[in-house]
Design a protein around this nucleic acid. Sequence first.
DNA 1: GCCAATCGGACCGAACTGGTCCGATTTGAG
DNA 2: CTCAAATCGGACCAGTTCGGTCCGATTGGC
Lengths: 153, 153
Amino acid sequence: MRLSSLADYAVVMLTAAARSCGTARLNATLLAEQTGVPLPTAQKLVSRLSAAGLLESARGTGGGVRLSRPPSAITLADIIEAVEGPIALTTCVDLERHDCALDGHCQVKPHWGIVNEAVRGALASVSLARLASLPSSDHRAAMPVMAVAEVLN
Amino acid sequence: MRLSSLADYAVVMLTAAARSCGTARLNATLLAEQTGVPLPTAQKLVSRLSAAGLLESARGTGGGVRLSRPPSAITLADIIEAVEGPIALTTCVDLERHDCALDGHCQVKPHWGIVNEAVRGALASVSLARLASLPSSDHRAAMPVMAVAEVLN
DNA sequence: GCCAATCGGACCGAACTGGTCCGATTTGAG
DNA sequence: CTCAAATCGGACCAGTTCGGTCCGATTGGC
């Protein structure tokens, strides 16, 4: 239940990119300096985010990267999936590889899809624009969460 | 963003335990047979779940385990935390070890706590009793999720 | 036409997960 | 009271994925 450091770094880097959106052309070196992410790791992430379509890259001298969409149209779920692959709490909800040992008579399997979508939805509701803004002063530690149970039969 | 197989197995085993709650005394061997989880793994999980207080164990001949609380009072979050440890998407929300390389000037850090609580809340809203029941016929693939963004500043 | 700067992919070591096994402990029967 | 069976509990080991580093391919400017 912990997301990889690469995904964490990617969020930090894209947040920094969103702040200077449009103002300057960005590259891996600059993002690494602004965020503190090690340069080689930043390079790898730039590659992966470009391949996923979140960044548009230009090679050669004076090249670099920029957000391919406005920050409000990029969500946490997008970033995580770009770095880690599809969000799938269990292997059985991953459409690609449904190789679960208990597959046949598993009574829980039908529920995982719902739970997975709930978590994914929570992440998809957070936009990069929101993450780039400074936090408000009135954090409510505990938040009212929609009842997954209500749709879980 | 994928939870460990052990956590998955634990959910399946506890779901099976909830079905035969009160009817029979359970042990690791029985749960392994009913669920298909390999016996040694089931034993390990029984240990861990007992240590976490979700199962009450009795040793010796005729011993075994049983749920320490009614299934409605056990949530997915409880099970996952019992097996994997605290739910912490990033290291910086883990109160124990906040050793993040970017700790000093990370602009995203304030937001992670909110997102983490949202995900945790989603998992905490699913009870074991709900998982043990058969799924309804009208699955709604996409579910309305509360807007995390609304509390994120 | 050459050079410099940038992205893209391949390689390697380390940490964790998952699986297996054996010992410690307790109860029930004889 | 002693023995023995059955159970939980923890230690050990292999496999895999993750994280980090490096070098080559490509492009645009001079």
